[in-house]
Nucleic acid binder design. Structure first.
Length: 157
DNA sequence: ATTCTAACA
DNA sequence: TGTTAGAA
């Protein structure tokens, strides 16, 4: 079974997943003309081009942003309002992502069950969520920080 | 083939 | 906003 620690690991780097304007346009049903216009209005941005190339390069994050703006415009919002709502949505998602990734400290075995290290409960204790193999409720257990840390690390790699 | 800017319908 | 033109 895969083990995880705080270290993020991945098969590919999303920062290398980029699109040119034609691709992004067909992916989002937003015309290239609109994409250039939105960029000029600073509602979206394209990646800085280090080389001398002229063609815009868009990140995956921009793909999400464009999709959100498009969605809100289809809902009837003006471009400016749609962009504002899309921005707010992304900020909420960033917060949630931070909340989750900071809360999930790693996995371990406790009482022969999968245990999810949810991080500090207070100054001395760490909260562990015990996930049963089959059906059944998830239970929680508080362990001394040192013990939780050690067992979480012991299962890693 | 694709994207660029600028301009006009 | 769509759709051109001509250049890169």
């Amino acid at each position: 079974m895969a083990q995880f620690t705080n270290e993020a690991r991945h098969f590919f780097d999303v920062r290398r997943l980029v699109f040119r304007i034609g691709e992004l346009a067909s992916m989002t049903d937003v015309s290239a003309r609109q994409l250039r216009y939105w960029e000029k209005k600073e509602l979206i941005s394209s990646q800085e081009r280090t080389d001398g190339q002229q063609a815009r390069v868009y990140t995956f994050k921009t793909f999400i942003q464009v999709s959100l703006i498009k969605y809100f415009m289809d809902e009837g919002f003006t471009l400016a309002a749609a962009a504002q709502k899309a921005d707010a949505r992304q900020n909420r998602m960033a917060y949630i992502h931070h909340f989750i990734s900071s809360g999930l400290q790693g996995f371990a075995k406790v009482d022969d069950q999968l245990a999810i290290n949810l991080g500090a409960f207070d100054a001395e204790q760490t909260l562990m969520a015990l996930v049963p193999d089959g059906d059944g409720p998830i239970t929680y257990k508080l362990l001394p920080n040192a013990e939780a840390q050690q067992m979480t690390r012991a299962e890693a790699e």
